[in-house]
Each structure stands twice: as C-alpha cells, then as structure tokens.
Amino acid sequence: MAQVSSVADEQPPNPLSTTKSILLRISRFNPEFDETNKFMEFTVSYEKWTTVLEAILDVKKHHDHSVAVRYSCRQATCGSCGMLINGKPRLACFTKISELDSNVVTVEPMNNFPVIRDLAVKFERLFDTHHKIKPYLINEDSEVDSDEKEFLQTPKEVENFIQFANCIKCGLCNSACPTMTTDSSFVGPQALAQAYRYVADSRDKGKDSRLDIIDESHGIWRCHFAGSCSQVCPKGVDPAMGIQFLRGYLLGFRS
C-alpha cells in the first residue's frame, strides 16, 4: 500500500483540475418553526464540471446534513432538483457552477410552489393540473382491435408532438411564469404544453374535451406570451410555442 501511495504522490497534478471555491448561499426554511427564510453560507470548492447539486450534496456531507433537497437521477431526467439558482429557475444537476460566472451562488426553493423545507417544494398542484388535461391518448379504437394492429404515424406526425413529450415535470416553467406569480388558479404552462402534446398527436381523438378544459377564465387565456417558460425549460419543450398553437385551435386559426 505504501508503494502505491508513493507512486500516487509522484504523479503530476491533474492538468484538468482547476479547483476554485465559491460562496454557496442556501435558503433555509422550515414552515413548522420559521416565520421567514434565512440564508446559510458555505465555502465550497469546485471544478469546472462541478454542478450546483454536487455542491449542495458536498455541504450536506461535510457541513450540514440537515439541508433538505430533493434529487434523484443527477442527469436532468427525473425533474426532481428544480430550484432558483441565482434567481432563475434551473435544474441543480444540470447547472455547472463554472457556467454561472459568479463567486456567489444562491439557491432558493422554486417560486409558485409551496415549500416543504429548505429547497424541497410540493408538486401536488402541478400534478393535479397535469392530470386535469387528460395526459393520455383518448381513442375509442384500441391498437389490439384495429385491423392495422397498431396506430401508425408518419415521421412528420411524430414531429408535431415529440418535442412536447420531452417534459420531465420539473416545474421550472411554472416557476418562471409571470402569470403564476399572482394567479393561484392558472392552469400553468406545464399542463398547457402537455394539452398540446396530446391534441397534436394524430392517434388522439380527445381534442375537443381538452380544449373545453383549458378554455376557461383561469385557463389558456391567462397566458400573455412572455416566453419565460420556454427560456428555462431544461429539455427544450418550448411550452410557449405549444400554448400559442393550442390557442390557435380555439381562435379558429388551426383545425
């Protein structure tokens, strides 16, 4: 073992290693005890590939294990680690510290979501609105009974909706939406984009029922095309585009 250590000591430093440090400010809030949130500050070293999530986990491991954060896949697939990073909604696992170009990184819970504790927020409302727009294919025929055995689609028909099928329900779009900052009943860009995803699917026959659901006072008409939802989407879903197309159906521009 000593020999191995000796060899390791003789190796030159990793030329890729450019360890620096930042001040990580983490919002702390426990609704059971706290009136308002407070920030705790930690100095964290990072490499150019270090993500914000890794920095938070480093704090949990070495400084304060009580920091509450939700995460799972660490590869922008599960949509669990959405939070405000330097004031903007982002996935912590998909945001490198080096690309923030700041010596101070502030992490807070996402806006427009009730806070469970620290950085973890409740997703019940997002899932409720998502479920409300019937996020599944509506078709009387089944693929089993059909003569063609399966519902075939052309590549063009797939392109009409596949972008919107990338949604991972991370909630960043709802957090960035300016309408959601004031309107608690607004259905939100995530659900509207998913409504378009199924309306645009050639296999689906539920367009009219979905349009009825979103055509209400706190529905699609509350969107004013600010586009912030599309700017923060980590999967390129572009909810603003889907919402405008959806509105096109209601206004008679599309059929």
Binding site: F161, I162, G227, S230, Q231, P234, G236, D238, A240, Q244
Partner: peptide, 16 residues
C-alpha cells in the same frame, strides 16, 4: 412562433 421539431442542445426555444 416556429415549428415543432426534435429539440437539440442547448435547446434555444423556437418561439423566442
């Protein structure tokens, strides 16, 4: 507002 398409990284939104 653009056309739906398979998004490529860095996912610049077509509607913007």
């Amino acid at each position: 507002v653009g056309k739906p398409a398979r998004p490529d990284y860095p996912y610049n939104p077509a509607s913007q």
